[in-house]
Amino acid sequence: MSTTATPPPKKVNRLGLEVLSYKGSKTTLCAGCGHNAISERLVECFYEMNIEPWMVSKFSGIGCSSKSPAYFLNLAHGFNGVHGRMPALATGAVLANRNIIGLGVTGDGDTASIGIGQFMHLLRRNLPFIYVIEDNGVYGLTKGQFSATADLGSKLKTGVINDLPPFDCCALALEWGATFVARSFSGDKRQLVAILKAAIAHNGLAIIDVISPCTTFNDHEGSTKSYSYIKEHDEPLHELDFVPHFEDIQVEIPEGSSHDVRMHDGSLLRIKKLGRDYDPTDKMSALRVLHEAAEAGEVVTGVLYVNTQKPTLLDMINMVDEPLATLPTERVRPSREALETVMEELR
């Protein structure tokens, strides 16, 4: 006897959307590329955070990392811009429509080499924007040259040794005004998901430097951005839990072992102490940790800094609440009398 099995109900989020609604096109990056793992995490996070995918806009510059916005959130607009200058496009778009959830995906060359100028000025402005650096220390698309985040002494496949010090994008972000700064590893699924969700919940500029090894050009012995090197040197600052605002928060945590940060949307970033005491709202200690880790040859990961109080660019320029892009004519064209007033002054 044959029976027709009832297909199990499709799994959907609170918006009634399947995870498929958050996926992108098939990746064309190399097998094992850390960037693909990051794309998968982004799909999960936006799905689980119940974000309408069409409210997201994806921005990128040039490079392997910057191709990746095609591989997640197909239902979101995307703009693959010019090399190192994605922040300008994103700034313009978010100003035009403040309802946009802006997500930038960039690489270490795109941010720290050609794009260092725009990166720094983006930091100053505290644009509400999620900025993910897929950091592998090397140019993949032009076949394996060093970028400006390559560590001193790191070796290329060709044997060339890097003799210039790296930019630490997290240290720069801390110094110049980002209000959410984190470092993670593409292979640490749990940590990366918590960080990305917190970044989505954050109102302000979130900089997330994700070490994302390049399997083709920078995954060999002597590289400081290889899978094996990062696994050996990854020093998580803490254990992270993200409790979204739409879930009940009823977990008892013993005094002193955790540091909670209430995010802008009401979500909770629960930071559980590992080896050391670390207060992610203290910028000075964040800088100290980064410098100490660099000295020790370690890669500290986790949420380095959160500031939920600083006004964003949109607050500072006191814009109307509605998107500028779709304001009706009568709100953007001054009256006939206004023109007549000016003309009279000039007579």
């Binding site: 806009s57 921005f59 703009f79 811009g81 010019v82 200058r85 922040p87 300008a88 496009l89 994103a90 700034t91 313009g92 778009a93 978010v94 100003l95 035009a96 429509n97 946009i100 100028g117 725009q118 000025h121 320029i317 998107p323 500028l324 892009a325 779709t326």
Partner: peptide
Amino acid sequence: IIQAEDELASVGMALGAGWAGA
């Protein structure tokens, strides 16, 4: 209105804004 860091940024912002409907 944004005073940008250079003309590359100012036109990039203008294009991003135009793309988004401003």
